[in-house]
Design a protein around this nucleic acid. Structure first.
Length: 112
DNA sequence: GCAATGACGCTCT
DNA sequence: CAGAGCGCCATTG
């Protein structure tokens, strides 16, 4: 399969994040893998940051592999993300970490 | 077109 | 457990 176009990868990531159900979180690496870009965790973060408000993408459900939120250019967003997740039923530990064992998204290979 | 940067991940020391 | 190094792809100067 030929290499995917830049815009395609972007769209794939976008689609994967959108399928994350409420109350669950997925890691960047996981999203990247599902998007067909294994090992490109950075791309996910970059793609999301490049997006923006109103994109319809629940970016808040994307956290790092440790289940913690990633500091962004502006610290406000981190708090916003945490607040949104808690509102969806996701509880954070004392260290601000999410129990992936409990809230980690387990995609179904329904893909075909 | 090259170099630097960025919401990351994994392995090794 | 903490720190450093390498890989990954796209965007920007």
């Amino acid at each position: 399969m030929p290499p995917a176009d830049p815009a395609a990868s972007h769209a794939r990531i976008h689609a994967v994040v959108r399928r994350i159900p409420r109350g669950r979180v997925a890691s960047y690496g996981q999203v990247a893998e599902l998007a067909g870009l294994p090992g490109a965790a950075r791309l996910v973060g970059y793609a999301l940051s490049a997006l923006g408000p109103g994109s319809g993408v629940p970016w808040q459900r994307v956290v790092n592999a440790r289940g913690a939120l990633s500091p962004r250019s502006e610290p406000w967003a981190e708090l916003e993300q945490r607040r949104r997740l808690e509102r969806e039923g996701v509880r954070l530990g004392r260290d601000g970490r999410i129990d992936l064992d409990r809230h980690g998204w387990r995609p179904r290979r329904g893909k075909k």
